[in-house]
């Protein structure tokens, strides 16, 4: 039961709500959470991040401790498995679940570091190319074309061949390899913004080049860059695992997912779990990141949504 005065207050509130736009964050969330796949991916990814951060506490065993009397123990639900090792143990008797959790740290770190290391210079180079389109811009774009001439994994292999294998060099190689995509994207979105009135207006108001670049134009170019960053994250994890598998990435005994698979190869005829578990983890993580990227793109860039 409500009194007439209450009704009018509610009406006014409703009217105000209808007239004002929802906050950008809320609008984004509404659009993003409508995508069921992206939402599931977000939950999976959050769980993965949590497992990685809390690996030291949650992991049942140390990732490097070798239980000599439990070599190649099958997962708990298979005959011969034990609850002590939920996903089984590898050829040295190390607990696979614990290694995967600690490996998540490495993979997430590789993803974050290589995305940041390529996105920041990529944005600066892309903006420079857009603001100085003559010789500087042309030079930058030609250099990027050269890098794009080689498939990314091959370029990463070449970089590692020069720098030597290892975790740090893997991150560097992936950062170098993914640079062109950010440069191209930043340049393209900055170019479309440059002709708009608000940019001209702030130019006339006396804004300097730096202010124009980073304060005026850049915030309006962020949506596609964020999406690219998410997709770059997934390909960084995939490429790092591939390098690890080839023996050019993180070196044993580091529990990197790809490196784990490299040593698992000899057991395809005897211990399927040693092969299956790390690969499934990579696959699910990459699927989740790709779904997240798609969801972000649809939510941040509604123009693209209708096409798919």
């Amino acid at each position: 039961m409500s009194t007439p005065s209450n009704l009018t207050a509610a009406d006014q509130a409703a009217n105000a709500a209808a007239l004002s736009y929802p906050s950008p964050l809320k609008e984004f969330w509404q659009s993003f959470s409508a995508n069921r796949g992206a939402l599931i991916a977000l939950i999976f990814f959050a769980a993965l991040v949590l497992a990685a951060i809390l690996a030291g506490v949650l992991a049942p065993h140390s990732p490097t401790e070798q239980y000599r009397e439990h070599l190649l123990t099958p997962p708990a639900w298979v005959q011969g498995g034990s609850l002590q090792f939920l996903l089984g143990t590898d050829e040295l008797g190390r607990d696979i679940l614990s290694r995967l959790m600690h490996g998540a740290r490495l993979s997430l770190m590789i993803g974050v570091v290589s995305v940041v290391l390529s996105m920041l210079p990529g944005i600066v180079l892309g903006l420079l190319a857009a603001f100085y389109p003559t010789w500087l811009g042309n030079g930058i774009m030609r250099a990027m074309d050269i890098m794009l001439a080689l498939p990314s994994l091959l370029l990463a292999v070449a970089v590692v061949a020069v720098l030597g294998p290892g975790l740090v060099n893997t991150m560097l190689a992936i950062a170098i390899v993914s640079l062109p995509s950010y440069v191209r994207l930043a340049r393209a979105s900055a170019m479309t913004e440059l002709n708009k009135d608000y940019v001209v207006a702030s130019q006339l108001a006396g804004a300097g080049k730096l202010r124009l670049m980073f304060n005026t134009v850049l915030p309006n170019c962020m949506a596609p860059l964020i999406v690219q960053g998410t997709l770059g994250f997934s390909s960084a994890i995939l490429d790092a695992a591939a390098l690890g598998f080839l023996g050019l990435g993180a070196q044993p005994p580091l529990p990197e997912w790809g490196t784990m698979l490299a040593s698992a190869r000899d057991y395809i005829d005897s211990a399927w779990w040693v092969v299956t578990m790390p690969g499934l983890t990579i696959l699910f993580t990459v699927i989740a990141l790709n779904l997240l990227g798609d969801g972000l793109r649809d939510a941040l860039d509604p123009k693209l949504k209708k096409l798919a």
Partner: peptide, 22 residues
């Protein structure tokens, strides 16, 4: 298609060998 697109193919190869060859 999404699964195929996200596939770590070095692992995919091992799984297929395990299944069809071994």
């Amino acid at each position: 298609a999404l699964t195929g697109y996200s596939m770590p193919i070095f692992w995919w190869g091992l799984i297929l060998i395990m299944l069809f060859s071994v």
